[in-house]
Design a binder for these strands. Structure first.
Lengths: 317, 317
DNA sequence: TCGTTTGTTGAGTAATTGCCCATGAGCGAA
DNA sequence: TTCGCTCATGGGCAATTACTCAACAAACGA
């Protein structure tokens, strides 16, 4: 976690230095002279401004290749919305680029004047996206989490994104006061029957837009790494044809939720309607190819933010 | 004028290079390797991306000092909206900073879903602001020029901003097919009576939002430099108490339009209502202090985008 | 076809920036 | 008060970026 809470005065200086550097186009030497500090301090302020995301860079040009891939994907899979960002071949990150694009998309939704319900899933990509959000006030909107916020060991689940979101966005937030996986279908029924949980579930079913990460399976996949499933449970699932998951809901290569005890123990809200609302999946990278493909063909999502490389895979296969 | 119309393919490369540099954070060496070009070429693409404004940087932090100045100004002068950007003490430019802020404000208006009429004045500051606009499509909106587009020598007036705006913004544009200054009040009546001109004038009177520059008088002021007024006419005006102008309408230190033959020859549309609409003035800099002050106290405008230095002057005087 | 012009390229170099480290100030605990 | 710790600072230096220049290539016009 990045160090929180720099003193406001320092952030103020950082903003000023960042402004002079990026907007006014001065050198760090000039900034140092203007602000009466050493060049090194000026450099620190500038990089602090970047680190604290006071400076937002956006690319305002539709890269033709990406647009083209996007519209082909939209056509081929009948998606409502597709955004393709350039690939960075040298980077193995599964978030760079997508996070920025997704943050911009989230921001667009949050800036709508009419009140909306925004549902949010979980995962590293989504976390990275939410971390890119600037401070926004939108008291009219409601933001609801689709997944529980309690990790298997009882601690708060780190990748439960809604809390990160609450840091930046001033809106009503509704976390899901549940574990991610419960011990049995019966327990799930019981928990979902609670008044508080029921109202959150109802709200999520009415989401106008939903952002979810798409997780791959495998012993390196998030479900195992974060301790939700044991290795042998994972192997069992994969033998049963599972290839990916969204909010814990595990699906096969055709994007159908598989019939397996694990899926009966998922306490997440169902993914909101792909007919009546926008469900935007975020994912890229070779390891996720199969999972993304399945989610798209099985209409677990109806919109996608991904990168060129992944887009090309989806078009060819 | 910046060189127009790079080939799309090159802009595409520039966008890609810019993305890799600013968003993905790679060095120019890495970009060069990835794109199969020399490092120098990569550098050129990156700076092309910046020069063509494909890369937009925005500062997402309310600098406390600026906010404070802004709200004080709003209170003191009863303005509807004030934006204060940091001063860059080393730069004598009258546009840096304001242009970016104004472009962002224009963009916000243009992104509104309901159709609006946006009126636009003239001047270097406004030109710089419009040059910062990204490409936007907004077929619902109408953009109307308050000032004529014919310079005294009969050529197209360079600082008639609406044409620059048309380059970036896809909306209906209504230039004012008139000179800026005509030879007499009678000629103005005649020209304003023409059907085409009348409908443009009517539209400007219904503007929802108006952006204007504030010009200072003096033999170095825009009216003289651009050849609209002779030196002696200017001296005469200043002896008569004139301190500034907006769209050619000349006012005194209290912001009242002065009673002078020149003002009877101004062919611009009247500044839209400050009671019913938003009229945003853009200006900063010592030379404009008096003119800005007059425009604000005389309610020629009801909103202001300026810099710290100017804001401090306005508060103290 | 042959200059001429315009624009692109890579090399070299100057300017700028990022990072490491030693220093010392500030502060709490002994 | 002194010790030990943390952290901001500025110097120095390596990495990175921006600029200039000369060579070259494509486009153009005679």
């Amino acid at each position: 976690m990045v160090k929180r809470s720099e003193t406001p005065a320092r952030l103020d200086d950082a903003a000023r230095a960042g402004w002079l550097y990026y907007v006014a186009g001065r050198t760090q030497d000039e900034i140092a002279a203007a602000m009466g500090i050493s060049r090194q301090s000026a450099q620190r302020l500038v990089s602090l401004a970047v680190a604290e995301r006071l400076i937002k860079v956006r690319l305002d040009h539709p890269i033709a290749a990406c647009l083209e891939l996007g519209s082909q994907l939209r056509r081929k899979f009948g998606l409502k919305h597709v955004e393709v960002v350039p690939s960075d071949p040298a980077s193995s990150s599964t978030t760079v680029g997508i996070a920025e694009a997704a943050a911009a998309e989230i921001e667009r939704w949050l800036k709508r004047p009419e009140p909306i319900v925004l549902a949010i899933g979980t995962g590293r990509t989504l976390k990275a996206a939410v971390d890119q959000l600037p401070a926004i006030e939108c008291p009219n909107h409601r933001i609801v989490s689709l997944t529980g916020n309690i990790a298997p060991d009882g601690s708060a689940a780190y990748y439960n994104v809604i809390f990160s979101m609450a840091d930046a966005v001033k809106a009503r937030h509704y976390p899901m006061p549940l574990p991610v996986l419960v011990t049995s279908a019966e327990e799930r029924e019981l928990l979902h029957g609670q008044q508080l949980v029921r109202s959150t579930l109802n709200m999520s079913a009415q989401a106008d837009v939903t952002f979810v990460g798409i997780g791959e399976l495998g012993i390196d996949g998030p479900l195992c790494v974060d301790g939700f499933l044991e290795k042998d449970e994972m192997m069992e699932l994969m033998r049963g044809g599972a290839v990916g998951e969204i909010c814990g809901w595990i699906f096969d290569v055709d994007g159908r939720l598989i019939d397996n005890p694990i899926n009966e123990r998922v306490a997440s809200a169902p993914i909101p309607s792909r007919d009546a609302s926008m469900v935007i999946g975020l994912a890229k990278g070779k390891r996720k190819f199969k999972a993304i493909r399945a989610a798209v063909v099985g209409h677990q999502i109806n919109a996608l933010i991904t990168d060129e490389e992944t887009a090309e895979f989806l078009l060819k296969n």
